[in-house]
Design a protein around this nucleic acid. Structure first.
Length: 274
DNA sequence: AGGGGTACCTGCGGGC
DNA sequence: TGCCCGCAGGTACCCC
């Protein structure tokens, strides 16, 4: 599922392929996934592409923006011309929005249909993005900040890591792997973390996200995420504990366990994580 | 206010 | 075989 590294990978890929190009048409095949006016988009040039948390922002020459949230299974696939697309047949049955762009077409696919595309002005961007917490790669992502948010609520640490209004961009994959990397049990109450654990966790979060980015994101068997080029990410080959229940811990050999926290699959090493 | 539960949607795996 | 059921998962929304 697209989390920070996956959306960042999509952003970087599209920056190379579609920035500076004009959107000449849109086909919306599933109305609920496209909120806004098509006429605010058609005829406009793509001026820049950014990311905030798990949200992709495509800025247009008229000051409007396309905000895209991929949720569980959203994809953006770029089929440029005349280079043949080395991937799936498009449009697929999961294709719900198609952008006609000078030089190619951009397909928004979403199997689960939870994702969305919104056309918004600057106020709309602020409204959507303003509620997001600190970016893990930002200099404001300090141990002091974490200490502050961890001390405020009585919840398992894993749930706090995934709260977008506190830290933007971490989802289930990287929360699990970061907690393993820091040697902390996902069930621990966040306020019980000692200073040295918070510091370890901060570094672990940055480390696993950087690694996710380095490998172009995670494309595990049951995940929909692929790059705009149709290529798969490779981070799933480097999962520390995520989806590794029943397998041996990479550090100590103990069998990785799976439990549920907040209804979501949670993976940990009973020996390495305290 | 903060925390818990549920809906959204589809494909897949298990059980019979 | 093939059908039915339960489950997975990010977030919004409702309710207490």
């Amino acid at each position: 599922m697209p989390e920070l590294p996956e959306v960042e990978t999509i952003k970087r890929s599209l920056q190379k392929s579609v920035v500076g190009k004009k959107i000449t048409g849109i086909e919306v095949l599933l109305a609920k996934q496209f909120q806004g006016k098509k006429e605010d988009v058609v005829g406009e040039k793509i001026t820049s592409i950014d990311r905030r948390g798990k949200i992709l922002k495509i800025s247009l020459s008229n000051g409007k923006n396309l905000l895209i949230h991929f949720k569980l299974s959203g994809q953006l696939l770029w089929v440029g011309h005349p280079i043949p697309f080395a991937g799936i047949e498009l449009p697929a049955k999961t294709t719900h929005v198609i952008f006609d762009i000078n030089g190619g077409r951009l397909f928004f696919n979403d199997l689960r249909q939870f994702g969305w595309i919104k056309v918004v002005d600057e106020a709309g961007v602020a409204k959507e993005i303003g509620k997001l917490g600190i970016e893990p790669f930002d200099k404001e992502f300090t141990a002091d900040y974490l200490k502050q948010i961890f001390s405020k609520t009585a919840k398992p640490i894993k749930l706090i890591l995934m709260e977008q209004e506190k830290i933007a961009g971490i989802g289930n994959i990287y929360a699990n792997d970061a907690l393993f990397e820091a040697g902390i049990m996902p069930t621990r109450q966040s306020k019980s973390l000692k200073d040295d654990e918070i510091d370890k966790l901060r570094k672990a979060i940055i480390k696993v996200l950087e690694e996710g980015l380095k490998y172009g994101g995670s494309s595990a068997a049951d995940e929909a995420y692929i790059k705009p080029s149709g290529e798969r990410g490779e981070y799933q080959k480097h999962f520390r504990v995520y989806q590794r229940d029943g397998q041996k811990c990479l550090k100590c050999g103990t069998t990785i366990k799976r439990i549920k926290i907040g209804g979501r699959g949670t993976f940990y090493c009973p020996d390495c994580q305290k």
